[in-house]
Lab assay of single mutants.
Amino acid sequence: AEIMKKTDFDKVASEYTKIGTISTTGEMSPLDAREDLIKKADEKGADVVVLTSGQTENKIHGTADIYKKK
């Protein structure tokens, strides 16, 4: 799966169907969080990951919607 910015995804959204939401939390780098989200998306058969939230304090927390091409 590839990560797309919401603004970029909005241009092609009609080509995809939302298949779920994924999240990651833990003591990790932003890059590790990104890789974890991609891994989870791949496991669910998603083609595209669109980040919906991200937070960093002591731990990273990120959520994303996942989509499959129609």
Score class of each variant (00 low, 15 high):
K44I: 12
A13C: 12
Q55Y: 15
K39H: 08
K5I: 10
R34Y: 14
D10Y: 06
T24R: 04
K11S: 06
E35P: 02
D32P: 03
T52C: 13
T56Q: 10
T17V: 14
A1V: 14
S53Q: 10
T17L: 12
K6N: 06
I66S: 00
M4A: 01
M4E: 02
P30D: 14
A33V: 09
L37T: 01
E27I: 12
Y16M: 02
L37W: 04
H61K: 12
V49N: 02
D65A: 03
M28T: 05
H61T: 13
A33G: 06
K68W: 04
K68T: 05
T52D: 10
I22W: 02
V50P: 01
M4W: 08
Y16C: 03
S14Y: 11
D42F: 11
K68F: 05
A13Q: 08
K40D: 00
T17H: 10
K44H: 12
K59T: 14
F9W: 05
K11H: 06
D32F: 07
T52A: 09
L31P: 09
D10R: 06
K11L: 10
L51D: 03
K6W: 11
V50F: 00
Y67T: 04
T52I: 11
K11E: 07
K40E: 03
S14T: 11
E57V: 09
A64G: 04
S23A: 11
K68H: 05
S14P: 08
A13V: 07
K18G: 03
E57Y: 06
A13G: 05
I22Q: 01
E2I: 15
D32R: 07
Y16Q: 01
S14K: 12
D65Y: 04
T56P: 11
Y67A: 04
K59C: 14
A33F: 10
D47L: 04
V48G: 00
A64E: 03
K59D: 14
L51Q: 03
K5C: 15
H61A: 11
K11W: 05
Y67H: 05
I38P: 00
A13S: 14
E15L: 12
I66E: 04
G26M: 11
A33D: 04
G54F: 15
D10C: 13
I19A: 03
F9V: 00
E27F: 15
L31Q: 15
G62R: 15
T52F: 06
R34F: 12
D65P: 04
S14L: 08
E2W: 05
G54K: 07
I38W: 03
P30G: 12
G54M: 15
I38C: 07
S23L: 08
V48C: 05
G62D: 08
A64L: 05
I38L: 14
G62Y: 15
D8H: 05
V12I: 11
D36A: 14
V12M: 06
S29I: 06
K11Y: 05
P30H: 08
L31F: 09
E15M: 11
E35A: 15
A1K: 02
M4R: 02
A46R: 00
Y67Q: 03
T17K: 09
F9R: 00
D36S: 08
M4L: 05
G45K: 06
M28L: 13
S23V: 10
T52G: 12
S29L: 08
T21V: 08
V50W: 00
D36N: 08
K59R: 10
V49F: 00
T7V: 14
V50N: 00
I60D: 09
R34G: 05
T56C: 14
A46T: 00
D47H: 11
Q55L: 14
V50C: 03
D42N: 15
Q55R: 07
P30N: 13
Q55F: 15
R34M: 15
S14D: 12
A1F: 02
E57S: 10
K70G: 06
I60E: 11
L31N: 13
D65S: 03
S23Y: 12
Y16I: 02
K40R: 09
A41Y: 00
I66Y: 02
F9Y: 02
K18E: 03
I38Y: 03
G20Y: 01
S53H: 12
A41L: 01
L37N: 00
A1G: 04
V50K: 00
V12S: 03
T21P: 01
G45D: 06
S14M: 09
A46H: 01
K44C: 15
E43C: 11
I60C: 13
T25M: 10
I3V: 09
Y16G: 01
I22E: 02
S29R: 05
K44D: 03
K70D: 05
G54L: 15
D32T: 07
K39S: 07
N58G: 14
I22P: 01
E15N: 11
K6H: 07
Q55V: 12
K44Q: 13
D32N: 08
A46L: 01
E57P: 11
V49W: 00
V12R: 05
D36K: 06
I66F: 05
I19K: 01
K70W: 04
E2G: 05
A46Y: 01
E27W: 13
V49H: 02
G62S: 13
D32W: 07
